[in-house]
Amino acid sequence: MTIDWWTLGLQTVNLVVLVWILARFLFRPVSQIIAERRAAAHAALDDADAARRMAESARDEARAEAEKTAALRAQILAAAREEATGEKDRLLNEARAAAELLRAEGASELERMRRAQQRALSREAGELAADIAGKLLDRIPDSARISGFIEGLAEAVAALPEASRRDLGAGGTVRLRAARDLTGTERTLLEQSLKDALGHAPELHIETDPGLIAGLEIVGPHAIVRNHLRADLDRIREEMADNG
């Protein structure tokens, strides 16, 4: 067995050249296209990742917007609720005020009606008292209707101010109202008593008014002096009405 050194050298050169050729025309292009595909895949993955991040960002923004909208809605609802509460309070206050006003008006009306009723009752009571007094007086002597009141009338006239007493009868006659016609004795007693009270004798113009029930009444230009049961009953009735 021999070795052909020329062949060995040529084959060595051939193989070195083949390594270079295949490196240039096979391994480099194929590995480059693999790398390009890998880069493209990475780019696609990066794009997908960027798109995913954008989608997440958009989702976060939408979520924040929804939360903001919910907060705004809650704020609007709270404001509306507060406004409704205020409006309700205002309406309630107005209703209360109106009810209070109605109640006050009702109370005032009731008071007015009560007073009117009281007055009517007093008036009826007065009339009833007058009737009762008249009927009771019918059972006592008729002279009591006048004579019993002369002294009181004279005392009331005496209690008048000086100017009023001076005016009574100064201008002429003095009106005298009586529950019935005076007898001579009663007239004389009355004139004497008035003279004592006034200091002068007035000229009397006597009028009969059974409404007085019993008693007398002098009507002067500036003063009226009453001393009869009607006046007493009227005063009592008015006091009852005032106190009732």
């Binding site: 067995m1 070795i3 060595t12 051939n14």
Partner: peptide
């Protein structure tokens, strides 16, 4: 199948 080629490969 010839030793020169194999030797060239081994020498490389």
């Amino acid at each position: 199948a010839h030793i020169e080629t194999d030797a060239a490969l081994a020498m490389i």
